[in-house]
């Protein structure tokens, strides 16, 4: 075995080297320059300690962004999960149409965020030529639904953008949950049916325990990706009108305001959240890496 070892390091090295060059080393550089006055243009650095972090923690917009990320996470942990579980349970018994429904549900998921965001902006949410123009007269001005009259206004822009992202995302959960549900031992299901369990009892006592690991893993992944979410917000509002996220905040600080110190500090804060969640992820997969 020893004799072969070098050869196997050679085989794994392309993947490792590439990941190291593009993710690990620049990542470590971020860790370093977050504590300097790096200006993004040249590499003469002065140590400034935690000044960059003071700057972002004093910035109201940073805290707004963090709050929005938390709201976003809560929305994604509930709405798409509920739709995904419901549709997956219903699809479980559809023999002939199962594949067709999965294809339709995944349609928006395989499209580019740019495509999805732009189609919603232009044909649905556009007040001049979109569907909104047709619907608006029927939304009363003083009702609970009134914010829907201008869905990209500061009060509701975050929810509108989240709705579009959820529209594109939930089909993925349907497919994953369905695959997990299909692993349920058929004898258990039949035994419960014989004993007269109704649909809800069947789900609660037979299916849910089987798919629980998958459901939990999805919770972790949804939380991670909710803290990293970027595309839909950037394209639809560019973080303006009350929908700033940590990712758009970092991006705009670097590439629009040239405040690289704040950008890298925010990147580090995001990574800290990400690392916390990856810890759970690795912990949940511990069985696979045990010797």
């Amino acid at each position: 075995m020893r004799r072969w070892s070098f050869q196997y390091y050679l085989l794994i090295s392309p993947a490792l080297l590439l990941s190291a060059m593009i993710v690990l080393v620049p990542g470590l550089l971020t860790l370093l320059v977050a504590f300097t006055d790096w200006n993004g243009v040249s590499f003469d650095l002065n140590w400034v300690g935690v000044a960059n972090f003071h700057k972002i923690f004093d910035d109201r917009i940073f805290w707004n962004a963090l709050g929005n990320n938390i709201r976003w996470t809560l929305l994604f942990l509930t709405i798409p999960v509920a739709i995904g579980l419901l549709t997956a349970m219903l699809l479980l018994k559809r023999r002939r149409t199962k594949t067709l429904y999965q294809l339709i549900y995944l349609g928006p998921y395989v499209l580019a965020p740019v495509t999805n965001a732009i189609l919603w902006l232009n044909i649905v949410l556009n007040p001049a030529s979109g569907l909104l123009r047709q619907i608006r007269p029927y939304i009363p001005r003083d009702s609970l639904l009134a914010p829907l009259r201008s869905p990209l206004s500061p009060d509701v822009a975050l929810f509108t953008v989240a709705a579009v992202d959820i529209w594109h995302y939930w089909g993925f959960l349907t497919v994953v949950y369905l695959a997990a549900l299909r692993q349920t031992p058929q004898e258990l299901v039949e035994a419960a049916m014989v004993e007269g369990a109704n649909a809800l009892q069947l789900f609660r006592h037979i299916y849910l325990p089987t798919i629980l690991p998958t459901v939990l893993l999805m919770f972790v992944l949804i939380t991670i990706f909710s803290f990293l979410t970027f595309e839909y917000v950037y394209i639809m509002t560019n973080g303006g009108t009350g929908s700033e996220m940590l990712s758009t905040y970092a991006y705009n600080q670097a590439f629009h305001k040239f405040q690289y110190g704040r950008a890298v500090a925010t990147g580090l804060v995001m990574s800290a959240f990400g690392l916390l969640a990856s810890f759970f992820y690795v912990w949940m997969s511990r069985r696979e890496i045990r010797a």
């Binding site: 990941s19 593009i22 993710v23 690990l24 620049p26 990542g27 550089l29 971020t30 320059v33 993004g40 992944l221 991670i224 990706f225 803290f227 990293l228 970027f230 940590l246 990712s247 970092a250 991006y251 670097a254 690289y260 950008a263 890298v264 925010t266 990147g267 580090l268 995001m270 990574s271 990400g274 690392l275 969640a277 990856s278 992820y281 690795v282 997969s285």
Partner: peptide, 14 residues
Amino acid sequence: MVAITVPIQLFLFP
């Protein structure tokens, strides 16, 4: 495993 979920903003700027 950890790298699957690394935010792009960690390494983007350098």
